[in-house]
Write a protein that binds this DNA or RNA. Sequence first.
DNA 1: AAGAAAATTGATAGATCGTTCTAGAGAAGC
DNA 2: GCTTCTCTAGAACGATCTATCAATTTTCTT
Lengths: 192, 192
Amino acid sequence: MPSSTKERILDSTAELFRRQGYTGTGMKQIAAEARAPFGSVYHFFPGGKEELGAEVIRTSGRMYMQLFAVIAGEHRDAVQAVGAFFAGAGQTLRETEYADACPIATVALEVASTNDTLREATADVFAQWIAGATEYFVFAGVERARAREVAFAMLSLLEGAFIFCRAMRSTEPMELAGESAVALVRAALEAS
Amino acid sequence: MPSSTKERILDSTAELFRRQGYTGTGMKQIAAEARAPFGSVYHFFPGGKEELGAEVIRTSGRMYMQLFAVIAGEHRDAVQAVGAFFAGAGQTLRETEYADACPIATVALEVASTNDTLREATADVFAQWIAGATEYFVFAGVERARAREVAFAMLSLLEGAFIFCRAMRSTEPMELAGESAVALVRAALEAS
DNA sequence: AAGAAAATTGATAGATCGTTCTAGAGAAGC
DNA sequence: GCTTCTCTAGAACGATCTATCAATTTTCTT
């Protein structure tokens, strides 16, 4: 599996975006990190940094949704799945020195008021996450409107906890957010 | 009240950080926005961008905590106060075209893995927010450990909802997060 | 009023940014 | 063999970045 140059560029960019954000990451640094010739970056992404950024956002978003799907498939009920999802997020944070959190949150905040193309890319990803999580809770037996509320709550808790964990270098926020998320899911299931 | 040059620099920097983040904001732009001579920026902040950033983070953090205190003082019980806090956040987002959200979240994510001085500044601010909110819920009658959990949940919901609202250009995430926060506070109060 | 000290200022420096461009290497098709 | 296309490679460009510093203005002291 000799990972193609384009794949290496996408992977490296995704990692650099997570750690340094969009404006904090340079094209030269991307080429160096991916061990790719500088010219190749513009060969594969003629649209430059913006095109590369948009593709990284969308592919990262897809991968993260698959991660939730995998964890959901490993657990019988929604309460356990959500608990495991937060526990996994906390563990990943610890293992990566609080670098690997949400793949696109930093970029999303950076570009929200400065670059409409990239803002739309992040909005599309988020909309898909919400839709996917909503369907999951509907399938688990929660009424649709309530399921959407729980989906937003779960993902908001997750994103917010990422911010606190990375800043404070502690997984306590993620653990407590996980408990709150579990409580909300349980209440929603009992209401139906 | 002829707002001093230093104050204007701090205010303008805070606003630019909210909209563009730390790396996305230049010293030249700060001077221009504050209508301050460029040299004055380095006169008042000899430590350069890092010193200016640290001071902006700490003053913005203080101001945002005061905002919560004001809203808390305007409402009798905690449930109503939390509801009003989220409603106010949503209204501000709409009024500012989704620019004025958390004053330091963008910077916090940007610097978490790249600048330990600024990371510590954001961590200090967050710790004070959590401590303040915890005391508030304790005073409202929630058992201490539970109060800390609710404080983390409320602020995580808020921060996460900010991300979604800004990206999706909608206040729906904030409204739903507010409902979830209210539900969590109500449950905590009933448990005691 | 005069001179010293402090505060303020914008031009400038050196590095790095995203991007463009030309040139060459290697494989596939005719 | 020759052409064509994809990919590699890095030099060069103008703009912009953070930071410095000598010059100027303002304030204070005598």
